[in-house]
Nucleic acid binder design. Sequence first.
DNA 1: GATGACATGTAATTGGTTACATGATTAG
DNA 2: CTAATCATGTAACCAATTACATGTCATC
Lengths: 187, 187
Amino acid sequence: MNQKRMTPSAYALLGLLDHAPAAGYELGSIAMRTIAHFWPLTRTHIYSELARLETLGYVAATDVVQQSRPDKRVFTLTPAGAEALDEWLNDAEAPPERNRVPVLLKLFFGRRMRPDRLAALLAGYRERAQAERDVFASIVDDLAAHHPDEIYPRITALYGMRQLDAMLSWLHETEALLNPPRPGRRQ
Amino acid sequence: MNQKRMTPSAYALLGLLDHAPAAGYELGSIAMRTIAHFWPLTRTHIYSELARLETLGYVAATDVVQQSRPDKRVFTLTPAGAEALDEWLNDAEAPPERNRVPVLLKLFFGRRMRPDRLAALLAGYRERAQAERDVFASIVDDLAAHHPDEIYPRITALYGMRQLDAMLSWLHETEALLNPPRPGRRQ
DNA sequence: GATGACATGTAATTGGTTACATGATTAG
DNA sequence: CTAATCATGTAACCAATTACATGTCATC
């Protein structure tokens, strides 16, 4: 593994540590409830990434002894780490995104699917999307109500909500298109 | 590499070959202009995947000698391959999607960004999204006009268009939120 | 004494991209 | 003669996930 190469995941950790020092385990929980919906990080990934960031001098660890819980290593963003974070943030490069949407892959070959299975696929997907949409909506509401100053987290949650709204209306459009209104007397 | 394991990419190739036999190179071009926007495949990936599908007996190759072009190996979907494809298509499982949206990662830490750089990031992103949206729109129109029977490809293109529409309105919303209207006399 | 939250990590594997290597043929 | 398209592949690398391993402490 290249020691120098900085991935978006590495910057994500620097960004989270900029908010407050934290141990690997804590970062896992934080990442889960803040950035996971647009940048998932697993715990093991976080641990190995932190080790790399430490050798780069971007974070520094201090052992914290706890009496009521297992001891932990708390990481702090170093000045060098803060500089690297700023450089990345202020660089307006936008690497080409490659989105993978598994459900579209199946749908693309829908001609070959059994109609009932196709309908089930879309219905199941719609239900999930609706549930997720509601979660985003409640997060947005909660942030607006209780953390009105935290505008950026709210914006990213709003993104999720808007995307799912679009997804849902597309799903309705698609289902209507595939299940045409029952033919009347003229066909 | 596990010989048995079938990835969505492998099924994608089976699906494309179901439409018509093709060589690896051709599949690359076809994939590029059909499924790339929701399931990108590189040429090298296609070649190695085809080799695996061949050992599985899901595709069969025949050498085709060409006089005006380099010879090629044309792959055909076998009955076993068609069966595997059907099984996958008619299985309504929906694996959890993990979306990675790099621009949101930066935006999440927007508090730390220079306002002008943040504005530039969003403006650049908006321009790209608009251009992509227009491409999808023209594809949808073209398919509706010239291939009205190819409903599934049109639906997937429509998905791209709707998602980008949502993205664009979210971007406008976000830009308005971050660049509040110039204060009047009361502030 | 079982379960679950807290805590850290290693090793193997996966699914895929990038870089490299080679060569035929056609169009400008 | 040069560039572009057609054609096939190997090797190296990469980011990340999954499976595995170990252990503390608090609560039920």
